[in-house]
């Protein structure tokens, strides 16, 4: 190393510190620090209400968590809400395939499909809460019109001797898998459409034309034209071309989307629970993040909520490792 480059490097080092400092300080105080702080706090019984004397309790929170039936129930809830992900991802792929062509006005469609993602948030949740209202909401108004005025129910009554009624949506513990309340087993009476399904349907509506569709569109435009032409010359039909050219070429994109959606899903459900259902009915829409929130900000049990957050973190960490190991580093956009 010559004298000159050494001098330059030292000079750049000082400049680099100056440029980095504001961001790095914030990064230390609001990200790195809190991560370790929450880990440490998870080994304590720290409660913000100070009704219990502070104590280090080692792994007790984690042991308690393991035997906490609520935790496992909310874990299942979180998983149930993630059942919509494959549908949403598949839908995004179909939309991207439909939009991936030279057609006038295609940009307008893309914009319209993206609208729910872009406007998502508390306002949209309040909109859907109104849509799902079992008595006055337009969803049930339409369903009831269909059942009664169109005479579907008369037909059903003749065939089965019973009448159909519109779902109670956000007020109902029923679900499409028939999972029982407060216990993870299949109960026939629980079969139907309820709060969890309502949240899933809304989630699909929000996500289907969103970022995943844009990623698929980018992936599609990156498939070499020669490959598609070669397939056509070989006489491959549309399905065969998709099956043997498009789908394998999109594999890295799909992998990325699946991993990211999975990570997002594990952390999801807080806003829906807080705005639409309060975690109910009977805790059926309480997800892990909402559980953490209630433990920390309603029961002020910081220690316990930090331990739940860390369990969530560890799961996400493992998924990320899998992504690093098997996902391609660059998607080449």
């Amino acid at each position: 190393m010559s004298w000159k480059t050494r001098r330059l490097r030292g000079h750049e080092g000082a400049a680099a510190m100056a440029f980095l400092l504001p961001n790095f300080l914030g990064f230390l105080v609001f990200t790195i620090g809190p991560v370790f702080f929450s880990l440490v706090a998870s080994f304590s019984n720290w409660n913000l209400q100070r009704t219990i004397p502070f104590q280090w309790i080692g792994l007790e929170n984690y042991a308690k968590l393991f035997h906490d039936p609520d935790f496992w129930l909310y874990f299942v809830n979180t998983g149930y809400l993630m059942l919509g992900l494959p549908v949403a991802i598949g839908g995004s792929l179909v939309l991207a395939l439909l939009l991936n062509r030279d057609l006038r006005g295609i940009v307008a469609y893309r914009t319209l499909f993206y609208l729910p993602t872009f406007t998502s948030g508390v306002a949209l949740l309040i909109l859907w809460k109104a849509l799902y209202n079992p008595d006055f909401g337009p969803v049930n108004v339409v369903i009831n019109w269909f059942l009664d005025s169109l005479g579907v129910n008369r037909l059903v009554a003749i065939l089965t001797g019973r009448e159909l009624s519109a779902p109670q949506w956000l007020l109902s513990t029923r679900n499409l898998l028939g999972i029982g309340v407060e216990q993870v087993r299949i109960v026939a009476k629980q079969w139907g459409l309820g709060a969890r399904d309502a949240i899933i349907i809304m989630g699909i509506w929000v996500a289907i034309g969103g970022n995943n569709m844009l990623l698929y569109l980018a992936g599609l435009s990156n498939i070499p034209q020669e490959l598609l032409e070669a397939a056509q010359i070989d006489g491959a039909g549309r399905w065969a071309t998709f099956r043997h050219v498009t789908w394998p070429q999109l594999a890295p994109t799909t992998f990325f989307i699946v991993v990211m959606s999975f990570i997002g899903g594990l952390q999801g459900g807080f806003e829906q629970a807080r705005v639409m259902t309060g975690g109910g009915p009977a805790g059926t829409t309480t997800t892990l993040t909402y559980y953490i929130y209630t433990k920390a900000f309603e029961e002020f049990d910081i220690g316990y909520s930090c331990s739940i957050a860390w369990v969530l973190f560890i799961i996400i960490f493992v998924v990320t490792l899998i992504n690093w190991k098997f996902g391609s580093r660059e998607l080449n956009y």
């Binding site: 990064f27 809190p34 991560v35 929450s38 706090a41 990570i263 993040t289 953490i292 930090c306």
Partner: peptide
């Protein structure tokens, strides 16, 4: 700029991208 540990610090930045918000939210609140 070229400086010592640059790539290590950057990797640390990248690694924090996967930390769920709820982990840092509670300590930040306190």
């Amino acid at each position: 700029l070229r400086w010592k540990w640059r790539d290590h610090v950057f990797r640390l930045y990248l690694a924090t991208l996967m930390i769920p918000g709820v982990v840092t939210m509670i300590p930040n609140y306190t």
